[in-house]
């Protein structure tokens, strides 16, 4: 039943994207209503600044309005497509911020950051649950512990290699190779599972 619902949801979203491409304002509004909470949460996790997350959400939907025609339903599910647009903008902004704020101390930033509680879902838990939702949990389980941890933190929290090394208390080289090998493994498994292409 859950599968049926998720199939229905994807068909509905794909339809809304298609109608948005034809400049249907109501379809676009409905698309926003159905997906913005998820996309907002994804952006908040990476950026950790409510204002920045809202800006990215706005930019992303402005871009969706203009580029809905480039969505290819044969290649990805609509929510995946939307998530990739939002993540991409978050990462651009985050990396730019890294450059802009090298002189800022940690304290300067703290006031506008939101807290992600220590006992909320961890990045690894989100990764496992996300894979579960797409029936590809086995792909996450093929990753070794360090690989899984590093990829989950980079993915959900936007950490760089250096930040990963710091957080996981491992040498930079180790962390880099976890990420590289973990991604290779993930790709093979996801392709076998037919999740993406």
């Amino acid at each position: 039943m859950a599968l049926l619902q998720s199939g229905d949801r994807n068909a509905t979203l794909a339809d809304l994207v298609a109608r948005t491409a034809l400049a249907d304002q109501r379809a676009f509004a409905e698309l926003y209503r159905r997906t913005s909470s998820h996309l907002h949460a994804v952006a908040l996790r990476i950026l950790r600044e409510p204002t920045a997350a809202e800006e990215v959400l706005q930019e992303s939907f402005v871009s969706v309005w203009h580029h809905a025609g480039s969505y290819d339903a044969a290649r990805s599910q609509p929510q995946t497509w939307l998530t990739s647009i939002v993540r991409n903008r978050c990462l651009d902004r985050l990396r730019r911020r890294d450059l802009d704020t090298v002189t800022l101390t940690r304290d300067d930033e703290e006031e506008t950051e939101i807290d992600l509680p220590a006992d909320g879902p961890t990045a690894v838990e989100l990764l496992i649950a996300g894979a579960e939702a797409r029936s590809v949990r086995a792909c996450i389980e093929t990753l070794e512990g360090g690989q899984r941890q590093a990829i989950a933190l980079a993915f959900f929290q936007g950490l760089t290699h250096a930040e990963l090394a710091q957080q996981l208390r491992e040498p930079l080289g180790t962390v880099k190779s976890w990420v590289r090998r973990g991604l290779e493994r993930l790709k093979q498994c996801l392709e076998r599972a037919g999740l993406v292409r």
């Binding site: 913005s36 990805s76 797409r134």
Partner: peptide
Amino acid sequence: ELRLGALADAVPPIVPAPRVWEGI
């Protein structure tokens, strides 16, 4: 992007403020 984007489904949703839609 699509491969990894598919793994973000489980992030608990947070409803954005109405001003976001207004801005769009």
